[in-house]
Design a protein around this nucleic acid. Sequence first.
RNA 1: GGCGGCGUACCCAAGUGGCUAAGGGGGCGGUCUGCAAAACCGCUAUUCUCCGGUUCGAAUCCGGACGCCGCCUCCA
Length: 493
Amino acid sequence: MKVYNTYTKRLEDFTPREAGKVSMYVCGMTPYDSMHLGHARAFLVYDMMRRYLEWRGFEVTHIQNVTDVDDKIIRRAHELGVSPCALAERFTAESLEDCDALGIVRAHHYPRVTEHIPEIIDLIQRLLDKGFAYVTPSGSVYFRVRAFDRYGQLSGRDVEDLTDAQARIEADPEKEFRGDFALWKAAKPGEPAWDSPWSQGRPGWHIECSAMSTKYLGAGFDIHGGAIELLFPHHENELAQTEAAADVHPCIRYWLHCGIVTINGQKMSKSLGNFLTVKEALAIAPRNVWRMLLMMTDYRTPVDFSTPDRTGSPQEIARRAVMAKLVPARSAWERVQIAVQRADELIRETGKSGNGETVNTPLTQAVRQRFIEAMDNDFGTPAALAVVFDLIGEMNKVIAQVEERRDDTLLAALAGARATVKELLGVLGFSFEEAVTRRADLAPQLIDLLIRVRQRARQEKQYALADYVRSELAALGVVLEDRKDGTTWRQKT
RNA sequence: GGCGGCGUACCCAAGUGGCUAAGGGGGCGGUCUGCAAAACCGCUAUUCUCCGGUUCGAAUCCGGACGCCGCCUCCA
């Protein structure tokens, strides 16, 4: 198996620290507002990786942090007149629900910063003891970037270079060097604060990830995930802290960064307003369609939604752009669903359950092989999907044959193909239960439709047909009642 | 300005030196059908932004140009 490691900028063989086990830390959420599609993509990507690794037999430990104290939370809590703590709590819960709705498997732990203050303080103390950090007069603690000689290697940056951008950074008189960053921030009035040896204050932005990844996964864990936008400064700083404290290199074996979501080439972000929340997205299309959309693109490539029509608010433009790109994904998922449902019907109808049994045929074995090859190449989901679509094409041919003659050999082949499609798409996180639920949701609407059809038959005095509709519904336990103001129905208990 | 990425058909998108440049969507033609839908078959890139170079052989490697994007201390 090969993965693209951002640290080395190369495809590398994936060899976990411990054979058969994978430890994975994913940069999670800062719960200050609702999740949007951009966040969703990142979580969907690592969900896919986890599912695949598990399917390949690895025992995966998946940790995803919750940065529940930070500047944005404090600012937003003040705006809304609630406590930062309550705000974080609310959006953490909401985001987890959104992830559930997207079919993302929950991480094993969601460690929160506020629950790891002692670990963070210990870590900062260790960095101070080793000379990698210093305390300022106001009681803040900064990381001494120049003391860590690998600083800048992950993101390919030279801190000594006084670039235009760096020259623009306002020089903080408390810092020894402009590139140094806060490990501990002395609290300003009205901010949440904890006791520490240096001041009443709170952790800096990056330290939580170092403290919590080390606590739950130990030094030298396997996969560190997150979106590419976090590469600098977040991951660079995190790496420096973790390795400086642990004296281990590498502390993180593979840095796997996913691409961002853009609208007309611009990053989807809260501040630009060009976003769609997860809830809005799921109202537009079911989760499998979003999965399809994202899995059709390599995880590292940006996913761009664009529309030539640039009128309206950023949000309206975003919505239009997203709708346009949804068409192929929707159709693709429909192709899958139609084939699987038809196979289900044929297998059920002929009494060959095929359930649970995986009938291996040369075809499904070859498909499985090609699927693994695709995925082993840095989680190549587009190629993996192509393999599954090939199988669906073959499956459709078998379906056509079975429709001609109910042959046991053909049915076995069909059962095998169906099981394989479900299994492999399941590895990518698609779920087939949705179709069942959606069908159930449809029932009331269908009954209303039948009532309208019967109404038309009655108007045209085709009473035999009208009665046929009523008696057939009655046989299903649906009782029609004609009243002055229209027809109602109830289900017999 | 620095670092990184991208540019493949009408759209999306694989491809990591050598079988006919995957796959999905769309379009067109056909089979099937009372009509549809679905499905199946065929067509839709002699060429990968452009220009050089390396090589027996390049979408792939190297150099350059152009265009787009991300990061450069809020960000998934």
